[in-house]
């Protein structure tokens, strides 16, 4: 067939049988649709003959041919060493990818728990000053998770109720810890000095939180929404935010190895721009 000297590659031979198999199927289909036996029979015969010839090509040596290696060869891929730009400190976009140093996870937890301990002070103070008593805010908080709180009277809500107390404490601890963790991750991304971080953590985020709560509390916790005093609510959030942010900001930062280095020592250039 071809020069013995020229390199060839064994390739499948072009064949018409797959086409005829498909055509036979469709003709038979058209015959079935129209109720025309002739089409049906013709399609069937085409299908059988073509399938038989197709299978025959699968026998060793029948369905392949030697395709000569010919035509232009691809141009070799040129190496361009030194053209990879690494995103590094000081370059636009670098700082927003990943802070060089972050707080350890424990800092966020500590901050959240500290804030969580400080926050009840204004909340309970409100309970006492508003005349509802110490347990009122706790019971209201539990309404976030427990159904049926809205059926209790104010007098009942002012008493100590062990279930509500337990649920309230769990909710408070969980939300405090989660928000603390968020602080730990978020605050290092705030540029410039710790004072800015304190501002964001102690004022901006509590404001956003209060605003969101104002909007959503009717859905999340209708009872709390009904009795809450928003000024005191905001004050509690500020106390939490300031304490949590202060604890986070005061903790020691650690260097995180960039992704893709498998936790090895950081590479000489701290950036990882073109890399995963």
């Amino acid at each position: 067939m071809t020069d013995p000297g020229r390199p060839t590659i064994e390739s499948p031979k072009p064949t018409v049988w797959p086409l005829v198999v498909a055509l036979g199927l469709v003709l038979a289909g058209a015959g079935a649709a129209l109720g025309t036996v002739a089409f049906l029979a013709l399609g069937g015969v085409m299908f059988v003959v073509a399938l038989w010839s197709w299978l025959a090509e699968l026998l060793p040596g029948r369905g392949t041919e030697a395709e000569p290696v010919a035509g232009p060869s691809p141009a070799p891929v040129a190496a361009r060493p030194g053209t990879v730009e690494q995103l590094g400190p000081g370059m636009a976009g670098y700082r927003m990818r990943l802070p060089e140093k972050v707080y350890p996870i424990s800092a966020g937890l500590k901050g959240g728990l500290a804030g969580g301990l400080a926050m009840p002070v204004p909340a309970l103070l409100w309970g006492v000053l508003s005349g509802h008593g110490l347990w009122f805010p706790v019971n209201l908080l539990a309404g976030l998770a427990l159904p049926g709180i809205d059926e209790l009277s104010v007098a009942e809500l002012e008493q100590f109720r062990p279930t509500l107390f337990a649920v309230g404490v769990v909710i408070h601890a969980a939300i405090s810890a989660v928000v603390g963790l968020v602080y730990g991750v978020l605050l290092p991304t705030i540029p410039r000095s710790p004072r800015w971080q304190l501002l964001v953590g102690g004022v901006v985020i509590p404001l956003i939180w209060t605003g969101a709560s104002y909007g959503l509390m009717g859905v999340a916790n209708p009872v709390l929404r009904h009795y809450v005093d928003w000024a005191w609510f905001a004050v509690s959030q500020f106390v939490f935010g300031l304490v949590a942010a202060a604890v986070v900001v005061r903790s020691e930062k650690v260097i995180v190895p960039p992704a893709g280095t498998g936790g090895a020592a950081p590479p000489p250039t701290p950036g990882e721009g073109g890399r995963p």
Binding site: P12, T15, W17, P18, V21, A22, V26, E57, G63
Partner: peptide
């Protein structure tokens, strides 16, 4: 490859 051709024609 032949099945591939069948897929298209079908």
């Amino acid at each position: 490859p032949r099945l591939n051709a069948f897929g298209f024609w079908a």
